[in-house]
Design a protein around this nucleic acid. Structure first.
Lengths: 398, 398
DNA sequence: GAAACGTTAGGAAACCTTACTAACGCACGC
DNA sequence: GCGTGCGTTAGTAAGGTTTCCTAACGTTTC
């Protein structure tokens, strides 16, 4: 029989055994598809009588429901079990500079309600108030009992100090810097909150429901208004000692390190000299007089249309992204890099260009893919974390 | 009661319980100091009767010995237990370009015998033969039964492919490239072998017996004939998907990345223009005519003596090391960086210079220290790993 | 009727608590 | 100064509890 790798320094007792087994049973039920006692027993190696007892306990927690009978072909009188849709709920928020996005999720991160609100220009207390209002709306929209919301996770674009709970390096939302957002959110919403770096959450989203599920270790590289990476190593998020793991900018901004950010501001600046050419013959601009500002969307659109200057810029973006991945690969040697963020999601233009450069440059290049979750990766990760904490709270607090 | 973080997908049974508890008991005995049943019970939370039973099993394996009585002040008739010095043994090798170093270790990596041999210029099969001879000599020197040697670990300066067991990127010992050294060593020595990157082993050495023991995650940065880092994250070695994690050279050798290696060859090359000044007035050279070659030792000696040109070079080394640590910190955000290797060990000259630059450059600079194990870090790590595998084999195979 | 699901019954393995004896140190009284 | 009693600590023994497994047995379905 296999022994868990973690070696507790304290003794384990029969109660520990049950804790472990009940979690094992939950983990196969959580999967989603209705499953019978006998199937659970076969899958986990736990005997049928024990599975029955454990299921009784799980039913008592309200996490698990039993489908009276099921649409399975040969059912042989089996009873099927699955996660109870309204047993517990978790709140997930994605706080950006422009919008606050939220979902209410059930066990297994099944979406119960979803809604976004505008927060542009708000200061930190206003954002907290907006979050509380959004939470109320989500509960109302889902039509659930607010008491079933057991945990909440919020993603913020900055480094979260795990000791003080304060946010730093929030370049996109300066109002957040130094703000103890978790405490404030807890007070306003009335739910225990975990606040986490948004890119780290996106990585966790890819890990549970996205492209990273198959990889043993990978990096989620977000290239958008800023650049940053989230690392999932051996199936676990690596935050780093100060929560600043994957904050790649600092690797390049000093002493002879050339590669500039491939982020939006930096790219627009790089493209500025070619602005007349890029803007001038844009067919997507219906009012040529108003199209005086360069955007990354415009540049990528022009590149798709074959504009040589725009393609040059895309090549430059690919070069810069390669530099970042090179650093990630050299230090962490990840199996896979997932591209995300407003710029990174343009896989049709970037994937091949970056992959080719990586091949040339690294002895062991990582696999390269584009995020399957798109711009909802953060929210997906937050929901997954919040749901798993909520479930753990219910199972652990029996 | 705390639940181990690892969640096995298969059920656990009472036998698992015992496996876990017997390991817990071993882990407190392994510590070294003789310990009584009652103390073990207090430390682990396991009841005294159970501790007695578990100790009986451990005594039967031959891993544990019981001191008849002890020099403890109030002993109250207590019996004290500790690791048995000659219960099992493990072989540790450190294969370098010039020398093959070996130790025979007991449980807890206690040294039973130690010996080095010259392997300069040998091809791979000759090195294997030398290793087998060294193993025989170590067994003879320790005066032990060869059958008690249960596992061996060898450190090599290259990337070890964990699927094929072959060595790559062994720039210092080109003869090793593509060689399946673990298989050959096993056949020649007659002991199961684990082959691991030498810098990774050094990191593990620092983790178990060195400066890294107190840190939760750290990087061991070896700066010598080559540059590389070993990462210990959350107490575990991070090898990376191809075993190439920490192979930092590849982060810098292309497309606008300036910082050159701070390794020996690179530094000597950098110092070449100043060779006449550095060599000319060297008081440590007794035969001025023969001192025509620059070495890193000489450069550092001259810097200690206050030679301005040599100090400039040290500054340059510090700049380059800072660049490497910057990358490590940006990706992994480690708590601590331990400097090692022939160049890195010159902490008196480097520590302050690098720390100062890191402060300026990084928002969350890691702590910086010099290896406490010096040039025996690899061997220490190999011994620790080999001993723990050997012990695991005995405990697991009851 | 055969196969699959689930339950019941019996038993085994592992742990804990409680209670006991043995050893040791200290303090007090002779 | 030295013995005796008391409190503390180490270890063992006995009994009880928790948890799980195997085997056998209804029950439902095909």
């Amino acid at each position: 029989m296999n022994i868990p790798a973690a070696r507790p320094t304290t003794g384990v007792t029969a109660a520990t055994l049950r804790e472990m087994n009940i979690r094992t049973v939950w983990s196969v039920i959580e999967g989603g598809h209705p499953i019978s006692r006998a199937e659970i027993a076969r899958l986990t190696g736990i005997s049928k009588p024990t599975v029955s007892v454990l299921l009784e306990e799980l039913l008592a927690t309200g996490l698990v429901t039993q489908s009276p009978d099921s649409a399975r072909d040969p059912s042989h009188g089996a009873v099927f079990f699955g996660p109870k849709p309204d047993g517990v709920h978790a709140l997930a928020l994605d706080l950006g500079a422009h919008r606050l996005r939220g979902v209410l999720a059930g066990p297994g991160a099944a979406i119960a309600a979803r809604r976004d609100v505008d927060v542009q220009g708000m200061d930190a207390p206003l954002m907290v108030a907006a979050a509380a209002e959004l939470a109320r709306e989500l509960v109302a929209a889902a039509g659930i009992n607010a008491a079933t919301v057991r945990h909440a996770v919020a993603g913020v674009p900055g480094v979260v100090d795990r000791h003080t709970g304060r946010v730093w390096q929030a370049l996109n939302i300066p109002a957040l810097n130094g703000f103890a957002i978790a405490t404030e959110l807890e007070a306003a919403v009335g739910v225990p909150f975990t606040v986490e770096n948004d890119i780290d959450l996106a990585a966790l989203g890819e890990n549970t429901h996205g492209t990273g599920a198959a990889a043993e270790s990978f990096a989620f590289l977000s290239v958008g208004t800023g650049v940053g990476a989230g690392l999932v190593l051996h199936g676990h998020l690596h935050r780093g000692h100060s929560g600043a793991a994957g904050e790649l900018d600092s690797a390049f901004d000093a002493e002879g390190f050339a590669a500039n950010d491939p982020c939006a501001a930096s790219i627009v600046e790089f493209a500025e000299p070619f602005a007349p050419q890029l803007l001038g013959d844009s067919p997507s601009r219906r009012t040529p007089g108003a199209a005086t500002t360069l955007t990354t969307e415009l540049i990528f659109d022009r590149a798709r249309a074959g504009h040589p200057r725009a393609i040059d810029i895309v090549e430059e973006v690919a070069r810069r992204i390669t530099a970042y991945i090179g650093v990630l690969a050299a230090v962490a040697d990840v199996e896979l890099v997932i591209l995300g963020g407003g710029i990174g999601l343009n896989g049709d233009l970037l994937l091949e260009r970056v992959a080719l450069r990586l091949q040339k440059r690294l002895p062991y290049p990582p696999r390269l893919e584009v995020s399957a979750l798109g711009d909802s990766a953060v929210l997906t990760g937050a929901a997954a974390v919040a749901a798993s904490v909520a479930v753990e709270e219910v199972i652990g607090g029996r």
